[in-house]
């Protein structure tokens, strides 16, 4: 779900960062209203919890594992605004400290995972909880809400990926960042998320919710008294958007393979995407030499290559040296 560096164009990153700022500002204001200022530690705790949630490897059929994101669970437990700040904090730390998710794409990641996911999921949870008065309402709400929240975030992510070829390409029409158009990115993201990741998310969320509800029901967020219309507008948009994703996924392909999007292999071009580069006879073999020599004068080019070689050899020798040392120790 985390968008790595260089999959989105810098322009998209900038737009998403600008979009994330008001989201965070509103969340900070809301949290200040709902949560007394000196209760700030709770945000850190929420962030740490959110961070650690993603460390849990959950069993999947066939002995493989996947992991949950927990955005909706935290929204249900702490309220969506606190969840937004907590998950954002976790994302910042992941990007800055662990190189997990890009620094430039941090805005987009915050928007998708810390905003869309908890708010969309929480809205569904609240909708169901308020309609179905029994205990079941809460559990069903948490299950559907977390499934929905994750998929809403996946859809927004897929759209961000999918618009890249259209907005960032060179004169020849060659995609400069994520090369997959919407027709490829949406099914590639949505199928695994709807069928597998969403189910894992829902199961984990409901089980944890049930555990906490039994052990310490007072610890679950009661909900703000006022309704937020903006939230419902977002929700409406997303409810319309998810079936679209389903439609796009109509041609059955893509699978929960090695890594989420690897499934595209079989259909990369079958879905109507014929990169312009192909028509102009662009071939893989010629790219590398072209780009190495293209713009650099010869002498600096040589120096640079030499430095590159030095760096690589030092790294290789040190790695080998390290291995030998380890063996001696054992």
């Amino acid at each position: 779900m985390h968008i790595p560096e260089n999959f989105l164009s810098p322009a998209t990153c900038a737009v998403m960062a600008v979009a994330a700022v008001p989201v965070l500002a509103v969340a900070v204001k809301k949290v200040k209203d709902e949560l007394p200022r000196e209760k700030l530690p709770m945000l850190g705790i929420g962030a740490a919890f959110s961070f650690l949630m993603m460390m849990f490897n959950l069993p999947l059929p066939g002995g493989t594992t996947g992991h949950a994101v927990g955005g909706v669970l935290i929204a249900v437990l702490l309220g969506p605004y606190s969840a937004c700040l907590s998950v954002s904090t976790a994302l910042i730390i992941q990007a800055l400290l662990f190189g997990d998710g890009g620094i430039l794409s941090l805005g987009a990641n915050i928007f998708n995972i810390a905003f869309v996911m908890p708010f969309a999921g929480y809205a569904v949870y609240k909708l169901i909880r308020d309609r179905v008065k029994s205990d079941k309402g809460e559990f069903v709400g948490a299950a559907i809400g977390s499934w929905f929240g994750l998929n809403a975030a996946a859809l927004v992510t897929a759209i961000e990926f999918g618009i890249q070829p259209a907005i960032a390409h060179d004169a020849a029409g060659l995609a400069l960042y994520c090369p997959y158009p919407l027709s490829a990115s949406i099914p590639a993201m949505m199928l695994p998320h709807m069928l597998v990741a969403g189910v894992v998310e829902a199961l984990f969320t409901v089980f944890i919710f049930a555990y906490i509800r039994k052990a310490s029901p007072g610890d679950i967020y009661a909900g703000a008294t006022k309704r937020t219309p903006a939230l419902y507008i977002l929700l409406a948009v997303l409810i319309l958007a998810v079936p679209l994703g389903l439609l796009a996924a109509g041609t059955a392909w893509g699978e929960w393979g090695a890594e989420e999007i690897a499934g595209v292999v079989s259909n990369g071009s079958a879905l109507g995407y014929v990169p312009a580069g192909m028509e102009s006879g662009f071939s893989f073999e010629t790219v590398m030499p072209d780009y190495t020599i293209a713009a650099l004068p010869e002498v600096p080019g040589y120096i640079l290559s030499a430095l590159f070689g030095v760096a690589i050899s030092v790294i290789v020798f040190r790695l080998i040296g390290g291995l030998a040392k380890n063996k001696q120790k054992a």
Binding site: L174, A175, L176, P179, Y180, A262, V264, V265, S266, N267, G268, S269, Y273, V274, P275, G277, M278, F282, S283, F284, E285, T286, V287, M288, Y291
Partner: peptide, 13 residues
């Protein structure tokens, strides 16, 4: 990888 099949060598490198 699939983009290479489509001839987009730029992305892949």
């Amino acid at each position: 990888l699939p983009t290479a099949l489509g001839g987009n060598g730029y992305s892949l490198t």
